[in-house]
Design a protein around this nucleic acid. Structure first.
Length: 278
DNA sequence: TGAATTGTTATCGT
DNA sequence: AACGATAACAATTC
């Protein structure tokens, strides 16, 4: 499940390898992963040079001489650089031939990954929310993005049109760091809580990038962030802050990890008032 | 066997 | 009607 930090790590690693390379061929072993069509993508990318590699949300963005190629890894996608003759690994969805004889592969066991060619980047990224690590993503931007919505806060964090790049791991980690229960209603968060959440998102993502992302299975290896996760995948184990057992619940169909003590279900102030009353 | 995973789209309900 | 919640979907592994 490559999320923003994993995609950023991949882009930083692959960018220097791919920049300046010309694409000589494109082949799709799983045509359904290619949009709009295999023929259109081949027409769009073959003969083009990869000027640069960047990231937008969870998309890997190939800047071509003319137009854009975007790769979304979804759950299990992995980019691999192979030499000319090596046999294709299992679950290879697509193959690009490069002018230096090497090949770029999209390997994807679940086959949910997507390859898109477009002449207008906006046509793909128009509905994405702001980049959470951009300097202009201030807490007031987050407040504005949550504004008018009345939904569970975790669901909103996972909504790519609210903020781009968070997935299940970093939504849970951000909420833990902010001390917010994932089921809290977005319109009931105080100004201070939104500030905390904003800070938490940025801290968690920056930390994860520094550690090269979170390794889960063969889909993503080499990261060390899994050692520093506070709640994700730690259900039943003691909270690293307070010792209470991490619990597992479902929020908007997604598995969710929470420390019941560090992330009280309602506004902490309301709880303390209730305690005073009793 | 069914649960888990992502993000989009369709559908149901308020 | 608009919004929010929920279900379905794509495919595979364990």
């Amino acid at each position: 499940m490559p999320e923003l930090p994993e995609v950023e790590t991949i882009v930083r690693a692959c960018g220097p390898q791919l920049a300046g390379r010309q694409i000589c061929g494109f082949r799709a072993l799983w045509p359904r992963s290619v949009s709009p069509t295999v023929a259109a993508v081949r027409r769009g990318v073959v003969g083009q040079t990869i000027e640069a590699l960047t990231r937008r949300g969870k998309y890997i963005v190939f800047h071509l001489t003319r137009g854009w190629m975007l790769v979304h890894l979804r759950m299990s996608g992995r980019l691999e650089l192979a030499d000319g003759q090596q046999t294709l690994p299992p679950h290879t969805s697509a193959e690009w031939r490069l002018d230096d004889g090497r090949r770029l592969l999209l390997c994807d066991t679940r086959k949910f990954g997507r390859i898109i060619y477009t002449r207008r980047l906006e046509s793909v990224t128009a509905d994405l929310g702001p980049e959470p690590l951009a300097p202009d993503f201030t807490w007031t931007v987050l407040r504005h993005r949550l504004g008018g919505k009345r939904r569970q806060i975790k669901t909103l964090l996972l909504d790519q049109s609210v903020v781009a790049g968070l997935g299940n791991i970093y939504a849970d980690e951000s909420l833990f760091r902010a001390g917010l229960h994932p089921r809290r209603k977005s319109d009931e968060l105080s100004e201070g809580e939104i500030r905390r959440l904003h800070r938490a998102i940025r801290c968690v993502l920056r930390l994860a990038i520094r550690y090269g992302g979170t390794s889960f299975d063969a889909a993503y290896l080499g990261g060390r962030m899994q050692e520093r996760l506070m709640v994700y995948g730690r259900d039943g184990r003691p909270c690293r802050r307070c010792g209470a057992p991490i619990t597992f619940l479902r929020v908007g169909q997604r598995g969710t990890h929470v420390c019941p003590r560090c992330q009280p279900p309602a506004d902490a102030r309301a709880v303390s008032v209730a305690e005073l009353d009793s």
